[in-house]
Nucleic acid binder design. Structure first.
Lengths: 191, 191, 191, 191
DNA sequence: GATGAATGAGTTTTCATTCAT
DNA sequence: TATGAATGAAAACTCATTCAT
């Protein structure tokens, strides 16, 4: 399979970034981890920057795929909202390296050019759904960035806490508790 | 003043990390920016790692200071909650370099050893208050990490969005909207 | 034809050396330019050095051939001298890549071993003729190296100037002017 | 002396280019030869290219200096012509590394950018003098490039032959023979 | 014969740290 | 204290050559 080595290299980066961070990532250890020669990396990528960007493109696509699959046409908004949040959470529980990589990629300004517009596009399908909810007066008429902060921000943090073993998202009750709280944050309430 | 150069060096790091990111931070440019010789840095810090860690300690302390000052004994919970969130937001609007630095410090695992327990301690005063609220049945009996995610996570993200000019937290209405949404997320509601 | 690929490879080197110089010449670009695989070069040549040396042998032979063809037995010395100089000039105008390659090959000491004795053999037929001229007291009894310098050196330079578009050797008058000056340099004169 | 290491590095390049050619020149051996660490080179030069260009600037200036010093106002044209040619020859006999370096620098197209307009500027003082000679009808009304070829080209070649031990320019008679022949090439003659 | 992916030694360059002044 | 030239180990990247197909 022609993509074998290319993939092995990408997986290596994912593993190493998670293990040691961007700062200590170097081409030699990537090659070693992937079981190829250092020069081989340059057959598949122009350089370190290109490699990192390609990896980001890959992880982002896989993640979006996972979320989109959770959406079901014709289901109530809340059901889809919960399902997609859950898909996001479960994806990262299954692929913790992805999460760690995306976080670092996003928070390292100017390290790699394309990095500028952040990775908020990652939850795009969810935001589109929220727009519909606003029209139905189900979702608060919040500034879009506030919505983003509430969903994206809290989601990221809870996953980080799980990976740091400060909580356990494998328990359904914890996940539910979290989803409900986010739901309360964004929906119209009567006190 | 004996601390003059030490402080100039710390400020340089803050500025440079914000401008170019951790990855491109190097001792020579720190020295240049601070107006000192490269060797001088080593009179005040053991090395790069020590410098970064010292800076983190400094920024964390300044930030906590700012938040604590917003707390007023005997004021209703919600008033204090809003005041402290607002203090956090305003601190970072005034010191955007701090925010960028803390973010990168937090998201670069193993870059600098002490980094392990994340920077959730930053909002500690707020969490203590939340514990009281739980006892009063005002705040939901949420898992502590869920609380953390809702407050810390969304706060971080909204600030990042502000710094990226995707929203404007200088408008009081936007801030209020955000605080209210977080409040809805964490308080007991009746629909 | 079995020599097809071998020739394509040699032509590639000629083109690339002229375009980018020896320093940037590499096996991959040679292969690309020749439309063969990198490994194929090694079926026809032992390695880079062998390839370069083989190419020099080829260019030198073609050049000498061209000059010799200009010589006509029984014609006056000056006529043959002019004819052969003209053959040399015209050969390089027709094959500018050859010139550039030979120059670089000659001026890169120790790059490739055999390179030591320079490329003065290139005008050998002319020097032989000069020896006859000396015997006839038509040509000055110059040191052979002085003769070489006057003919070979000035010839090379005028061609280089033509290729750099600083003069135009396509104009017959310019060529004549040059040949006459060289002739004046080497022949016995009465002032 | 602050220029000590910078000069040691430049001298190293000169020596090494002469000994092994451009092709085998590498930063490590330059450093070794100069008795400095590899990194030190980068304190004085931006990189290899900058180093080479700086060296060319230095050698060119030294050479021109030497030639200009040979010129004496008010002396007959021929005397100045011979003196300057002689200065050029003697300079290179004393500094053979300079010659080898300049040759290679000139004949390696596109290796280093500034290289484009060749090194004919090297004999500029001589060409200016020739222009005067033309006005006096002493020098033939030759195309400038033909003049260049006759002087510069033959000069270069005779020096190369000397360095290759094919002739001996230390003998004054050989030099004279050569200068006279060049003089005959460029001056108006009556046969 | 022909390929071109793979290699790994070698190259240029960077940069945290040291140390003579 | 303060300097900044110097270091050299380590980094990113190149490329002639090999070899399984």
């Amino acid at each position: 399979m022609i993509r074998n080595k290319r993939n092995a290299i990408l997986k290596s980066v994912l593993k190493l970034v998670n293990r040691q961070g961007f700062y200590h990532l170097n081409m030699k250890s990537i090659a070693q981890e992937a079981g190829v020669a250092a020069g081989t990396i340059y057959l598949y990528f122009k350089g370190k920057e290109d490699l990192i960007n390609a990896l980001y493109a890959m992880t982002a696509e896989e993640f979006n795929q996972a979320i989109l699959e959770a959406y079901e046409e014709g289901r109530p908004l809340q059901a889809n909202f919960f399902a997609m949040l859950d898909a996001a959470v479960m994806f990262y529980l299954k692929n913790p390296d992805h999460f760690s990589f995306v976080e670092q990629y996003t928070y390292a300004p100017f390290l790699f050019k394309e990095n500028q517009d952040m990775n908020f596009s990652l939850l795009l399908p969810i935001y589109k759904m929220m727009a519909q909810g606003k029209a139905l007066r189900l979702i608060k008429p919040l500034d879009e960035s506030v919505l983003l902060a509430l969903i994206h921000g809290s989601l990221n943090t809870i996953i980080k806490l799980h990976l740091a073993r400060k909580t356990n998202l494998r328990k359904e009750s914890t996940r539910k508790e979290f989803y409900n709280a986010v739901w309360d944050a964004v929906t119209v309430t009567k006190k």
